Amino acid sequence: MRFAVLLVCCVLLASCAAAHSPNASVDSLMSRYEGDGPGASLLVVRDGVPLVRRGYGFADLENRVPATPQTDYRLASVSKQFTAAAILLLAQDGKLSLDDRARQWLPALPPAADAITIAQLLSHQGGLVDYEDVMPADTRVPLRDKDVLDLMSATDHLYFAPGTSYRYSNGGYAMLALIVEKASGKRFQDFLRERIFLPLGMIHTLAYVKEGPAVPHRAFGYSEENGHWVRTDQSMTSSVLGDGGIYASIDDMARWDAALYDDRLLSESSRAAAFTPKTRTDDPTVEYGYGWRITGDSVWHSGETIGFRNVIVRYPDRHLTVILLTNRNDPEPYRTALAIAHLYL
Rank of each mutant, 00 (worst) to 15 (best):
S15V: 15
C16Y: 13
A18M: 12
N23V: 11
S28Y: 14
M30T: 01
M30S: 05
S31C: 03
Y33F: 10
G37F: 01
G37R: 00
G39W: 06
A40K: 01
L43E: 09
V44H: 01
G48M: 05
V49I: 14
L51V: 04
L51E: 06
F58A: 10
R64P: 05
A67M: 10
Y73S: 04
S77V: 06
L89P: 06
L96H: 12
S97L: 14
L98F: 13
A108Y: 09
L109P: 08
D114Q: 02
D114T: 07
D114N: 04
I118D: 04
A119Q: 03
L122I: 04
G126M: 05
T139S: 12
R140A: 13
D150M: 11
L151K: 02
G172Y: 04
L176F: 05
L178A: 09
L178P: 12
I179V: 15
F188K: 01
D190P: 11
I203D: 12
A207D: 11
Y208A: 03
E211H: 14
E211Y: 11
P213Q: 00
A219G: 09
H228P: 09
V230L: 14
G242P: 09
G245N: 03
I250Y: 01
A254S: 11
W256D: 09
D263T: 15
S267V: 06
T276P: 04
R280E: 06
P284Y: 07
Y288F: 15
G291L: 00
T295N: 10
G296Q: 02
E304D: 13
T305G: 07
R309H: 13
I312P: 00
R318N: 08
R328L: 03
